[in-house]
Design a protein around this nucleic acid. Structure first.
Lengths: 229, 229
DNA sequence: AGCCGGCCTTGACCTAAGTCAAAACCGCAT
DNA sequence: ATGCGGTTTTGACTTAGGTCAAGGCCGGCT
């Protein structure tokens, strides 16, 4: 079976397209594989196409001159990434790395733009994808600038809980070190905050398994909150 | 003369379109005016269309539960804003307010989407606009998370200097209070940093007029930097 | 000219979160 | 089982930058 084809059919980017059009999509897509820790592209590389995750997990991130890392996104199966240079004709604005062994589809820029010409709904789908991305960025900026680390963690836990459809606990999909980088902090700080939140009876922590003891409290912390001592 | 038509012709969103198509664009656009300080929309409002600035200046911003504000963008003549809900069919992700008395064009969602159907290049232009916006967001996240306030200010000064095409100084287009909010800090801190940068012989500050005394130093601070005492 | 209100600056203080270093933990391969 | 490398935790300490409160400045209005 062609797993790639399944992903294409299930991805919202290609939603509402006919069989023949989907086949065209498949035709221009190239299979690529990356090992855990392997770089997919670097900030500044010319972007001659974008990717869709078939299998595995990918992080998009920036690094500072002194080595600190900030993760912008983490993408799993079905999610496109690296589209910015396709439309603003230029270089990748950030780095991409495989967090696990991953299979990706690569869509060359020119082929894809031709496809858009023939499929107006594809253009609208892509506009929807970029708009969602912009929405996520406003949240990330809000988190970084207007919330303290405990509130950011609480937001993320609630987000995960919705995503995983499990109201009374979540299992972290990434290491705590990576989570720290996603939340704009460092492992030491994150560790202490997990500590504190357990101490307050909000959550239970067992490795990567987080139990929600007081969901309302977590919710509250995520939006209004500050953690008392 | 129709200033709105001039703006439409000069805006990259409508670049490469024929006269007749531009006339169509004008036809669906509605004129709106806002006084200084007036709200254009609030976060959470349903977004039934987007705007283009004809005259004046607009800020897009978020606020925290306790009142702190983070400016996401400031837009002047020719710039579109508020497009996210047009394509992700939903609510505005942030607030918009007129910083000065402003004239705007409002494009209703449905009319505009019809126009896209008939003009593939309009779709590509809009994709380019959103991509540029994403690019800017990656920079903003990088600034907030990976740089300290002095480096953010230095970046902004260099950016302004390029924008204003004046290599040895800039004049701030917004109040220092608003600048603080744009940089993710508060007026007191910004004031102290202007102070320090003057003291180090990097810049001269005279109200909103900033002279560059050591441009290389500012540049260096913006990318590698930390300000010594 | 004089007053008012918003903006900006200054000072003293506080605190969230980063740094550095060491220990504990955990899964994996020998 | 044992040892090893990476990850996570803990502790002691530092610091960037926020808070609070008071003045200073400047431009518009009467």
């Amino acid at each position: 079976m062609d797993k790639a084809m399944h992903i294409i059919e299930a991805t919202s980017l290609f939603g509402g397209m006919q069989h023949e059009q989907l086949a065209q999509v498949r035709r221009i897509a190239q299979d690529r594989s990356f090992k855990r820790g392997e770089a997919i592209f670097w900030e500044g590389d010319p972007g001659i196409g974008f990717y869709v995750v078939v299998q595995g997990k990918v992080k998009i991130y920036k690094t500072s001159f002194d080595g600190k890392e900030q993760i912008l996104h983490i993408y799993g199966p079905g999610h496109p990434f690296g589209e910015v240079p396709v439309f603003s004709g230029n270089r990748f604005p950030a780095n991409a790395m495989a967090l696990e062994s991953s299979r990706l589809l690569f869509f060359p820029r020119t082929d894809f733009i031709d496809l858009i010409g023939a499929n107006p709904s594809l253009a609208l789908n892509m506009l929807a994808v970029l708009s969602m991305r912009l929405r996520q960025f406003t949240v990330q900026v809000e988190n970084l600038s207007l919330k303290e680390v405990p509130a950011r963690l609480a937001s993320y836990l609630i987000f995960l809980s919705d995503e995983q459809n499990s109201p009374d606990g979540v299992s972290l999909p990434i290491s705590k070190g990576q989570l720290a980088s996603l939340l704009g902090t460092i492992p030491e700080t994150l560790s202490r905050i997990f500590q504190k939140m357990s101490g307050q009876g909000l959550i239970s922590v067992n490795g990567g398994e987080i139990g929600f003891i007081n969901r309302a409290g977590i919710q509250d912390l995520s939006e209004n909150g500050r953690l008392s001592d």
